[in-house]
C-alpha cells in the first residue's frame, strides 16, 4: 500500500532475498525491457547516419580514406572494445527477455503453471549458455584483424 505506515528498516530488512522465482523473473523482465527500449532509440539514432550518407556526405576515416558517414560510424563503433562488450550485454538482455517472454506467453495460455519456477531457472541457464557460446562471434575481428 503506497500510503502505508512506514515501518522503516523493519519493513525492508532482508526482504529482497526472500523474493521468489516469479518475482525475480518479473524484476529481470522489467529491467531488460527498459534496457531494450533505450537501445531501440539509440539504435535508430545511429542508423540515421544513413540519411546524410545517402546524400553523398563523405568523411575521412582514421586510415585516411574517404568513406561515407554511415559506414564510418558503424565501423568506428564496432572497433571499440567497450561497444563490443555492451553488445554482448545487449545480447544477454535480449535473449533473457525473449526466453522469459516465451515463458510468460505460455503462462498466459495456461500452460505449465505448476512449473513456472523451473522454467524461469531454465531461461536463466539457457541465456547464460547462449551468451557464452556467442562471445567469440561478437569479439571476432577486434584486435586489428
Amino acid at each position: 500500500m503506497s500510503q502505508s505506515y512506514n515501518r522503516g528498516l523493519v519493513e525492508d530488512f532482508g526482504r529482497w532475498k526472500e523474493f521468489s522465482a516469479g518475482m525475480w523473473a518479473w524484476i529481470f523482465h522489467k529491467f531488460t525491457g527498459w534496457v531494450l527500449v533505450g537501445y531501440l532509440f539509440t539504435h535508430i539514432a545511429v542508423l540515421s547516419t544513413a540519411i546524410p550518407a545517402q546524400q553523398g556526405e563523405m568523411v575521412t576515416n582514421s586510415a585516411g580514406e574517404q568513406v561515407d558517414v554511415y559506414t564510418n560510424t558503424l565501423t568506428l563503433l564496432e572497433s571499440t572494445f567497450v561497444v563490443r562488450l555492451l553488445e554482448v550485454g545487449l545480447l544477454a538482455v535480449a535473449v533473457f527477455h525473449i526466453l522469459n517472454g516465451i515463458r510468460l506467453l505460455l503462462v498466459d495460455l495456461g500452460i505449465g503453471l505448476e512449473s513456472q519456477d523451473k522454467t524461469f531457472y531454465a531461461s536463466l541457464v539457457l541465456t547464460g549458455a547462449i551468451v557464452i557460446a556467442s562471445v567469440p562471434t561478437f569479439m571476432a575481428g577486434i584486435g586489428g584483424a
Binding site: A50, A53, Q54, D68, Y70, T71, L74, T75, E78, S79, E87, L91, A94, I98, S134, T137, F138, A140, G141, I142
Partner: peptide, 21 residues
Amino acid sequence: VLAFHFFLLHFYHHAFEITLM
C-alpha cells in the same frame, strides 16, 4: 524477428563489416 535480426547481422554478416552498400 529479433532472433532473425540478431542472426543475420551478427552471425551471418558480422556487425563490424556493415557498410552502406
